[in-house]
Nucleic acid binder design. Structure first.
Lengths: 142, 142
DNA sequence: TATTGTTATACTCTATAACTATA
DNA sequence: TATAGTTATAGAGTATAACAATA
């Protein structure tokens, strides 16, 4: 395959895509039996880390448009994992929180993902993981 | 944003996704006025590098399902950038080639993408690019 | 007037099954 | 029987515009 890819194999953009797809494939499988998509896991992680944020703030942190975020929290709320709390100071806002069940599911999902990450780190050698993260975020923040 | 992402910021998988989206955003814009999507550019690159490959081989190299590959070459053929050539030894097969116009468009797209890649490499320091590519392909190949 | 959440919608990307023609 | 290409289709993910309620 490498031989047939030609110049693509030397492109950061293309290598990023292939690596991301491969890693997501493994990560998606790791939480599949929890019936969670990665977007749902990411919302649980942010809300669990910073409870009380409003929808727009969580969506912006994750790079998700607020219009598309609605169905995402709907799904988590319907499953009893998160809830929208009314904000007394501004009745337009919905502050987001995890339920006790949401905390449990997040803990389980986090453990599964951590196991995948450990396997990835093992492929990268001693300081590979930290170096990779530093480079990736340098590319991601404009 | 980093502060609100919590544990996500330390995940290789999540950082890969954010970096890939940011890089693709810039790359997509760089070829937008050629009216080319990145999937089309990747097909032009592979066929230009290895003319005569059959559809299934190109699709496999790019990780695209052969069913989804049909519309992709259709679009390139309709624009006169690529052509399906009958294979005399096996009439089921279509060998893929670029037209002269396809070669020209590929050259232009390659130059645009190379300019983006140069900006990315500049962000990563002296040996950053090579180190990053090595790590990404280590993750992508299983 | 501006913002928050929402609905509706359209478009791309991807995955799967089934068909045809050839081998 | 198996393979190459194809068609049809359904599910995600994403982007945009417009609306109601509230500020």
């Amino acid at each position: 395959m490498a031989a047939t890819l030609g110049s693509l194999a030397g492109l950061i953009g293309y290598a990023l895509r292939r690596a991301q797809l491969a890693v997501f494939d493994e990560t998606i499988r790791s939480v599949a039996d929890l019936d969670l998509r990665l977007a749902q896991v990411s919302v649980l992680a942010v809300v669990g880390h910073r409870p009380g944020l409003k929808q727009t703030e969580v969506a912006a942190a994750l790079g998700i448009q607020r219009a598309n975020f609605v169905a995402l929290i709907d799904s988590l709320e319907e499953r009893g994992l998160a809830r929208r709390a009314p904000d007394p100071s501004d009745r337009r806002r919905h502050a987001l929180h995890l339920t006790a069940e949401g905390e449990r599911v997040l803990a389980e999902a986090t453990a599964r993902v951590a196991a995948v990450e450990a396997r990835l780190a093992a492929k990268l050698g001693p300081h590979g993981r930290e170096e990779l993260l530093a480079m990736l975020w340098r590319l991601a923040r404009d």
